[in-house]
């Protein structure tokens, strides 16, 4: 039998160890972000980076990188942002619609061929999307869609369809059939019941589907790089990549990181605000199983 004191000591030791592990994890998690943040306020070029950059003197901090990125970069930040929002926003809207329809059909209908269809979309989604870029490029070139808004919105809209469709399906499965049936009895047709009852109940998962459909195009470099050539159609991702790859080591590294911060901000905020929904939505299939 251990004494009470020994038990108490071991409990305290366990608690200290736990905090130590978590603090280490937090340091690991936060370090690159801290690095991004701290360099974005400095004027030191990448060639001048030393460990001392991590503890800057308050007097050295400056907003000049933000000023450059937001107001003096070419193409203008506003134009990059607008393009990104157009591409990602349209793709999200289309992707959302497709996911909602797909999820509904798979969840609430038992149509002949359902199993085949699921295998079909699963198989298709396994093909690495980066490898579709070139065949699509040739096709879109023939259609005259290269270097147009439509030319990038179309391929983007398929990006998250399968994944989001299955997310929506899983969520709709959790809505009891009798809610829909109550709507039928109350005087709606099946289509109206879908739009007026089922869809409003799916808002949380639809939000997640839209978010996922948005974030892919918003941060896409590989496809935009091939499909877009004119500066006036450039997206934020292209701008950032360009800024990073043309860094010769003399301009302030803060330009890249300030850009990164500004570009990430909306996504980070969305993640933090909708954390619960996002995690819940993404784990629905696994935890329920």
């Amino acid at each position: 039998m251990r004494t009470r004191r020994a038990r108490r000591a071991s409990r305290i030791a366990k608690r200290i160890a736990s905090h130590a592990v978590l603090i280490l994890a937090c340091l690991f998690a936060v370090f690159p972000i801290y690095f991004i943040a701290v360099t974005s306020f400095s004027t030191i070029p990448i060639a001048g980076i030393t460990a001392s950059i991590l503890v800057p003197k308050p007097s050295e901090l400056t907003l000049s990188s933000y000023d450059f990125v937001l107001f003096h970069y070419y193409p203008s930040f506003v134009s990059l942002l607008t393009n990104s929002l157009i591409f990602a926003g349209s793709a999200a809207a289309i992707g959302l619609l497709l996911a909602a329809f797909t999820g509904y059909a798979l969840s609430k209908f038992n149509f002949p061929g359902r199993r085949t269809f699921v295998y079909f979309i699963l198989l298709i989604s396994l093909f690495p999307s980066f490898l579709l870029i070139l065949p699509l490029y040739f096709t879109f070139k023939d259609l005259g869609l290269i270097d147009t808004y439509l030319g990038l919105i179309i391929p983007y809209s398929a990006g998250a369809v399968v994944f989001s469709g299955i997310l929506v399906k899983n969520y709709m499965d959790s809505i009891p059939d009798d809610i829909e049936e109550a709507a039928l009895i109350d005087g709606l047709g099946r289509t109206e019941a879908f739009f007026r009852v089922l869809l409003p109940l799916c808002y949380p998962i639809l939000g997640l589907a839209a978010f996922l459909a948005f974030i892919g195009p918003y941060t896409d470099y590989a496809m935009a790089n091939v499909f877009i050539t004119s500066n006036n159609l450039w997206t934020l991702a292209l701008g950032l990549y360009h800024l990073n790859s043309t860094d010769t080591g003399v301009q302030p590294y803060g330009l890249v990181t300030a850009f990164a911060i500004v570009m990430s901000l909306p996504i980070v905020v969305a993640y933090m605000v909708f954390q619960r929904y996002i995690i819940g939505g993404l784990t629905l299939g696994s935890v329920r199983g």
Binding site: L22, A25, C26, A29, V30, P32, I33, F35, I36, I46, I215, Y218, T219, D220, Y221, A237, L240, Y241, N244, Y253, V256, T257, A260, M263, S264, I267, V268, Y271, M272, Q275
Partner: peptide, 20 residues
């Protein structure tokens, strides 16, 4: 805090990691 890395778009943080 632990969730932070996940919230940042991967494309962006990978670019910075490459420099780090």
């Amino acid at each position: 805090v632990i969730l932070l890395p996940w919230a940042f778009p991967a494309f962006i943080t990978i670019l910075v990691w490459a420099n780090m």
